[in-house]
Write a protein that binds this DNA or RNA. Structure first.
Lengths: 318, 318
DNA sequence: TCATGTGTTGAATAATTGCCCAACCGTGTT
DNA sequence: AACACGGTTGGGCAATTATTCAACACATGA
């Protein structure tokens, strides 16, 4: 089917072909090998390549009773407007597996709307994993706005700022914030926010219909620190003031109170959109994020949550 | 009743859970069995249940996926024994790009067979482009037979008769038809076909294991006319009789019926090999050829097709 | 009560898949 | 020319998954 000696692009093509024959047409790898004219081992490699390159996307479409029930209980216990709970895999240490797929499902659902919507996007590893699960789409009617700056302290683009990936994949208009994630001072931040272009983006963010964001922990592996946005001293200070979690850079304590001063004075992120007029959905799971999630839902910093069974149970046990 | 439906629900629940652990979390069935507290076999059954019940949805996010699906649909809609669809490039006006490479791949695959085969070859621009894509090979075990004469009305070799190019490239024995493409009359054609050497070639063609050929349109740019095989008047007459396409010189209408009389009386080509006992694969794409392709598959003048996405969709839309 | 049909189970086994390794190929460097 | 290197290939084998089969549970209706 394919000639030898061709480029890497062709390799992905073959991988897609193999993946299709395997996962959709149900061929064995031996049959695929025959059809593609390669050895069985190569067919196996192509199939696994299709998977590892994310060409193949698996989604599970069934409301598992326990998860549904947990979601309902979460909604009623914390006055959430939206909750989704996915099964837990006790052994897995991944902080994204499962919730990323579920988040992708939700994001896709919103984007399928023919009515134009404004979707605000936070940042983080979980969100990035979710975006990766999204299929290619064509949604020119929607606008996607970033809640955070996209420039790191060293001047490079922030890796976990995923608005470009998202807008690219779904062909929607993107409104990034061409700002550092943190300004050097409150004054600079306020000044930056005065700029007309930034103003427009901030206004757009405030009008978002739905927001998807992650929750960062503020323990010693806080992503805010690991990614170089705040110093070790600042992290310590935040912890001392009771900081347990962080959303688009805004740190808060276990009661969900935004901490006054410190790094919060410098966050250049947009304010989190209204939880009265729109859905603000956090995607987060895991024991380490528990205090952060608990704080965020307590004061309705968010009003929607995608998490897993274990986390849901822990939240309800409090 | 409630008990029954409850157990059924639980079973599906477990299936969903097992499917989730398997496809999303990447557990082995043994791990799943341990987590769900069932035997490994039961876990396997749950996983396969999740799949067969459609709980698990697999998607392939790559342009090739659509092509493979279209190929399957073509096969089932038109009872084809073979179909391949390549991605369309809407910008390109080439009538060969993509399909030529795919055809080359198929031809190569057949030629790689260690068992001796007989391959019949039609004529045309698309086929020529396909042959050009072929790598050099060494296939003395195979025989390649031309379905058409190789002499133009002016006595020169027909340019789009590609059997020599092909046989040369793959070092197989070639059986051309040392005849004009069209005789001057039915009587002459029949007489020519009586010649022992031609007889042998015709017999060989009838025994072909696989045939590759192109489809010519019968609009005002009909290659049959442009290459000087039929006059403008003859073309008009064919069009008037409903002619929409032509295969190795045989003209047919939109129902795939070979047109009686006219140029068909003079075609010196071999009959198209059996579609019951062998594969007859046409390589054709493009809007202009659409009626020709549609007619040919309708009556199974061919039982295999290599085309592109747009053409495949148009064929299926009829 | 008992045959009967339906559906589930685990053991055994067959089929398929995943992985390691040595060999090989093309490329660039000394 | 010799050589190292990154990447690919197919053989061999171990792990995993699918299927078959006999046994069994259980509801149903005679």
């Amino acid at each position: 089917m394919s000639l030898r000696s061709e480029t890497g692009n062709n390799r992905l093509d073959d991988a897609a072909r193999a993946g299709w024959l395997y996962y959709i047409a149900g061929n064995t790898q031996e049959e695929i090998a025959a059809k593609l004219g390669v050895s069985r081992q190569s067919a196996q490699r192509l199939v696994s390549l299709a998977m590892s390159e994310g060409l193949v996307k698996v989604r599970l479409d069934h409301p598992i009773a326990n998860c549904l029930e947990l979601a309902e209980r979460l909604k009623s216990a914390f006055a959430l407007d939206f909750a989704e709970v996915v099964p837990s895999d006790a052994n897995s240490t991944s902080t994204t597996i499962g919730v990323a797929e579920a988040a992708a499902g939700q994001i896709e659902k919103w984007l399928r709307s023919p009515q134009p919507i404004i979707m605000a996007i936070g940042t983080g590893r979980t969100l990035r994993a979710a975006i990766e699960q999204l299929p290619k789409m064509d949604c020119p009617q929607h606008r996607i706005v970033s809640l955070t700056g996209n420039i790191t302290p060293d001047g490079s683009a922030a890796y976990y700022n995923v608005i470009f990936n998202l807008a690219d994949k779904v062909k929607a208009r993107a409104f990034p914030m061409p700002l550092p994630v943190f300004a050097t001072s409150r004054e600079e931040r306020d000044l930056l926010h005065q700029q007309p272009m930034i103003r427009t983006t901030l206004d757009l963010a405030a009008k978002a219909n739905v927001t998807f964001l992650g929750i960062g922990e503020l323990n010693d592996e806080a992503p805010l620190h690991e990614d170089g946005f705040i110093s070790a001293d600042e992290l310590k200070a935040l912890q001392k003031s009771g900081g347990v979690g962080e959303i688009v850079g805004w740190s808060y304590d276990r009661e969900g109170r935004i901490i006054e001063g410190m790094s919060n004075d410098r966050v250049a992120s947009a304010p989190i959109p209204s939880r009265d007029k729109s859905l603000v959905i956090a995607i987060a799971k895991g024991e380490k994020k528990l205090p952060g999630i608990a704080g965020a839902i307590k004061r309705r910093i968010i009003n929607g949550l995608i998490t897993d069974e274990l986390t849901a149970e822990a939240l309800l046990a409090e």
